[in-house]
Design a protein around this nucleic acid. Structure first.
Length: 574
RNA sequence: UGCCUAAUGGUGUAAUGGUAGCACUACAGAUUCUGGUUCUGUCUGUCUGGGUUCGAGUCCUGGUUAGGCAACCA
């Protein structure tokens, strides 16, 4: 039986359109990133929507780079964006660029001018802003608003020929300077950009269309039916519709299957963007963190970028599950970072092999141990023998966590304490502490214990219950491992809501690098990380009681570097 | 003194005129060779006034609150 799943409001709209036979029963979406930065988890929410709708309703989702501003855009980003989308597990139909339509858009602009719907304004940006009015006061008309068509035509063509200096003139739509929607107050359609070549068209163009004059038209040209975006574009929708109204019904140039007489027209729908506590979701701020070296790069594991999350150890599956859990509405909210962490724990707990590593080691000597070269076999995940096992050398001298021993323990502490409870060494023997040795400053240097040789795990004598199980590694065989312990990037839940500089809100402890002593089996991981399709392959572990970790690409034959993806929940409060 | 959105537990979402449900969090207990996991339970919610209706979270209406809108950005 199919699981009953509630539809989000976009899916309801789509199903309704399908029921009514709109757009010839077609569903077509697009993901329209601007190639001016790396994808972050907020984009993933949009990607899951755009690609998800197409997948679910047998439609197609194309990738379209919204590259109308050469000042900010670069091919570097075009590549990384495609890589990230593929990694997430989505496949687009076609790759398009808004710049594919520059010729058509230019023709359309000329037509607007001829029809008296556009004019060339030669005021400064400041003057134009001034005349725009405010949300509560109407704007006033530009002195150039009623320029003759011929003059507009001549000037706009001069703009494109590069005869006009950047910033000297713009092409404006002639709509309504008193409209309560600010975007209708003669919005700019084209501006001159001669200072930067375009990453695809080079120096061909000296004028470039603004978003509002490019996006809806591009949708139309391609046959997009549902143009889904985030809430900040709601106020742009009337303008989106206005521009399309001017030529709707004409043959869409990049949509060969279009049929004469079709009712086709694209519609824009908006959903709430993703905000997560203790991070920022603004490309501008991320770029600043990267440029100023406040993080190690776009793929710093503390960053909410797709590449950052990947390096942190988040799987594509877990990220998509997370997006699925948070849903789509029109309510602007803030998602608890805890939900993202919960999702990755849920995913990794079933697959990540368990290994021992001691972070704050203290030597444990088993005074009655006489064995030599003993090997212990332990399952990679307890209770799942099909996932294999590994060998752990055992011996008289081990490292255990300093925190697992307390000289004077209260009843809430059920680990090692002299004369205290019996404690199990994970997968090995039951021991009992007898005492400890301290240095001149009172710091414990060695813990002494006796072990019960008949209590080995998996044997009959090992069935005895203990209240605690502690981790250990054998001193002679263990390996030093660099562990990078990541925590939330910011100290406050919502850095964007705070007054002042957001950089002052960074969490100074968001990265701690420590060296821990890990069990011998991790030596097998000391080799360069494999790279497939430009993406470093990840391998996860759970360091028992410490959390989930992933091997970092900085790893080589000489050192193993682990990034903490997420800690384990810790209910032991003191 | 404008226009556009939206208001359901601490958080995120569902209920499409008919029992306010789910997940996360928190707390409590049980289980456990990870103080993890698992299981069970508990707390906490329809912004507000009026109306329509046998019946309203849902429809109508007035208010309140929050967010967005005045880039030659997208």
């Amino acid at each position: 039986m199919e699981e009953e799943k509630n539809l989000n409001f976009i899916e309801q709209i789509v199903e309704n359109d399908l029921r009514e036979g709109k757009n010839d029963g077609r569903i077509q979406t697009r993901f329209p990133p601007e190639p001016n930065g790396y994808l972050h988890i907020g984009h993933v929410k949009a990607i899951c929507m755009d690609f998800g709708i197409a997948e679910k309703y047998n439609g197609v989702c194309n990738l379209r780079f919204d590259d109308t501003n050469p000042v900010k855009e670069d091919t570097e980003y075009v590549d990384s964006i495609q890589q990230d989308i593929r990694w997430l597990g989505f496949r687009w139909g076609q790759v398009y660029y808004a710049s594919d339509y520059f010729d058509q858009l230019y023709e359309l602009a000329l037509r607007f001018i001829r029809e008296g719907k556009a004019y060339v304004d030669e005021q400064t940006a400041e003057q134009i802003a001034e005349q725009k009015g405010t949300p509560t006061e109407p704007g006033v008309a530009s002195p150039y608003r009623d320029r003759p068509v011929e003059e507009n035509l001549r000037l706009f063509e001069a703009m494109q020929r590069g005869e006009i200096e950047e910033g000297r003139m713009v092409l404006r739509a002639k709509i309504d300077m008193a409209n309560p929607n600010m975007h209708f107050r003669d919005p700019i359609m084209y501006r001159i950009i001669t200072s930067h070549p375009h990453h695809r068209t080079g120096r061909k163009w000296n004028v470039y269309p603004m978003y509002d004059f490019a996006h809806g038209q591009s949708d139309y040209f391609e046959g997009v039916t549902h143009s889904i975006c985030t809430l900040e574009f709601v106020v742009h929708r009337p303008l989106y519709d206005y521009f399309i109204d001017q030529f709707v019904g004409e043959v869409p140039s990049n949509f060969p299957a279009w049929k004469e007489g079709s009712d086709y027209r694209p519609h824009q729908y908006e959903f709430n963007r993703l905000n997560i506590t203790y991070t920022v979701m603004s490309k501008r701020k991320m770029l600043q963190l990267v440029k100023e070296g406040l993080v190690a790069g776009w793929d710093d594991p503390r960053m909410p970028t797709v590449c950052g999350l990947r390096r942190r150890g988040y799987t594509a599956e877990a990220i998509r599950t997370f997006i699925d859990k948070i849903g789509y509405t029109k309510v602007e909210g803030m998602i608890d970072l805890g939900l993202l962490e919960h999702t990755i724990r849920e995913s990794l707990k079933q697959t990540a092999p368990r290994v021992c590593a001691i972070f704050d080691p203290v030597k444990l000597v088993l005074t009655n141990y006489v064995g030599d070269g003993e090997m212990i076999e332990a399952e990679n995940i307890d209770g799942m023998p099909e996932l294999g096992s590994r060998i752990m050398p055992f011996g008289k001298e081990l490292y255990i966590e300093r925190g697992d021993f307390l000289e004077e323990a209260d009843k809430n502490f059920f680990r090692l304490s002299p004369g205290g409870r019996e404690v199990r060494l994970k997968s090995a023997y039951i021991i009992q502490a007898t005492g400890c040795e301290k240095d001149s400053e009172g710091c414990i240097t060695t813990v002494y214990a006796t072990y019960d040789p008949t209590s080995k795990s998996g044997t009959e004598g090992g069935n005895r219950k203990t209240k605690a199980t502690i981790n250990w590694v054998e001193c002679g065989s263990c390996v030093d491992v660099e562990a990078r312990l990541y925590d939330r990037l910011f100290r406050v839940e919502n850095p964007s809501a705070e007054e002042g500089d957001f950089r002052d809100l960074l969490n100074a402890d968001s990265l701690k690098v420590v060296t821990c002593k890990a069990e011998q089996s991790l030596r097998n991981e000391m080799h360069p990380v494999q790279v497939v399709d430009g993406i470093a392959q990840v391998k996860h572990f759970q360091l028992l009681k410490q959390g989930y970790f992933v091997i970092d690409p900085d790893t080589n034959e000489n050192r193993l570097v682990l990034n903490r993806t997420a800690s384990l929940k810790d209910n032991w409060q003191k």
